[in-house]
Amino acid sequence: MKNLSSIVVLCVALLSFSCKEHKETKIVDVAAEYQCPMKCEGEKTYNHSGSCSICKMDLALVMEGTALDVNDMGISDESIFNLTTKWNTEEGKMIVLEDLKGKTLVMVMIYTTCKAACPRLVADMRNIETQIPEKKKKDLRFVFVSIDPETDTPKHLKEFAIENEMDGEQWTFLQGTEMGVREFANVLAVKYKEIAPMDFSHSNIISVFNTEGELMHQQEGLGVNNKETVSKILELIQ
């Protein structure tokens, strides 16, 4: 009888086991703002519609109310920190993207055995870096994500960093999993395809994220004028 009950318990446990997860999210309300179109009360705003107490005109909507979904970690909906995949850095540390929170991020996807476009992309990144004032660099992270996680091991990435004199604090190189890289590329709208072992065809896109991990700017192409990218970065690290 004892056997039977343990079997039943086991069965019930098996049945109820499935792929579930519960994550609490709380809604942070950002109220809409209304204002008298004649500005009878100056810049005074209301958080509800109605009519102006002085001229009786209908209040006009000046700011759309939004309900921002911010989860426990305080990450917004559009943030790349929602990706929970793990990455290895060139220093051999395991991180998640959220560990990069608080810094303005400049990200690009490359692979180190690339002969054609990647050296130019790396040069583009370096070019952007030299235009950033020295004392601002601590607020920035230049991140290279490898699209060839099989070849680009942390050791390999470290060698690449040293070779290209990008071993400083502001440079980070990441090795992910095949699926993690594909997911990340999809967030950046970067396309890539393995056309031969250790040879890939890929989009040349440099992406700029703010400290919250929200995409702010993308520069497409090789050796293009990076004035806009640099001004965007400078604006973000103000």
Partner: peptide, 10 residues
């Protein structure tokens, strides 16, 4: 060719 490296190969 500016956006993709090697796209002509495919």
């Amino acid at each position: 060719s500016n956006l993709f490296c090697g796209s002509a190969a495919i």
